[in-house]
Design a protein around this nucleic acid. Structure first.
Lengths: 120, 120
DNA sequence: GTATATGCAAACAATTTGCACGCCT
DNA sequence: AGGCGTGCAAATTGTTTGCATATAC
């Protein structure tokens, strides 16, 4: 993967926020700095950054959101404000239980806790 | 919600499989029994059945899958064959931990375990 | 009789892709 | 020079919606 100003910009936009943005939001931010950037380029680079393991993607309702935090972690999703909050909880026991009870070799766990955040 | 043959058919198709089908798959099955049914009707009824709590929906990649199992449960997702398997694990401790550590009132938990199932 | 459900096709929204040109290396 | 990356627009895909007709109650 060779250098491109567009990709660097897109990556920095994701790293500079904790808000798990959508492709469209990233596109808008990117256009502020680089007005001629195209939405196709944004999508292509998001996919590429994900393939390289530099960002992660989350499936949220009908859109994909992107997350610059590549450490294993989970999410709290507030039903009132829609906020998605990173949360770090140990899942070793869970993993072992599944491994044993279902003869399923766990690779990765994705948990979302739906509910009401402390702001409400 | 009043009776309709289409809705009954759609519901029975979902209840008769454990495969977490997509709208399109359900549409194909439904047309075998009722050739003139439309895809719009399938979508409308899926939404309605979900609103009534008779089925659940799962966000999988770019499509929605439907699940006739409305008991709280989680999923194993095999990276090789793509199968989605129901799994029942207690999450009470997890729930309490989140409640306490993040002042977040948990309503519902969704867990997906990615990995390799016993067939491989 | 009246409101809800249907079939059909057109509209949508998120994402992907083909192509000619541009810019890293 | 050669190939990856870009902008642009058109294509795809999953889902929703408007409308006239049909059906449950």
């Amino acid at each position: 993967m060779r250098y491109s100003a567009q990709r660097e910009l897109i990556h920095s936009i994701i790293m500079d926020t904790i808000s798990h943005p959508t492709a469209d939001w990233i596109y808008d931010r990117a256009r502020e700095k680089m007005p001629k950037i195209s939405l196709g380029t944004v999508y292509r680079n998001l996919k590429q950054l994900e393939d390289e393991g530099m960002i992660r993607s989350l499936l949220e309702e009908n859109m994909t959101r992107y997350d610059g935090n590549i450490q294993p972690h989970h999410h709290l999703r507030c039903n009132i404000c829609g906020d998605l909050i990173d949360v770090d909880i140990p899942d070793t026991n869970l993993r072992k239980g599944i491994q044993k009870d279902y003869q399923f070799e766990v690779d990765e766990i994705e948990m979302v806790f739906f509910g009401t955040c402390s702001k409400h």
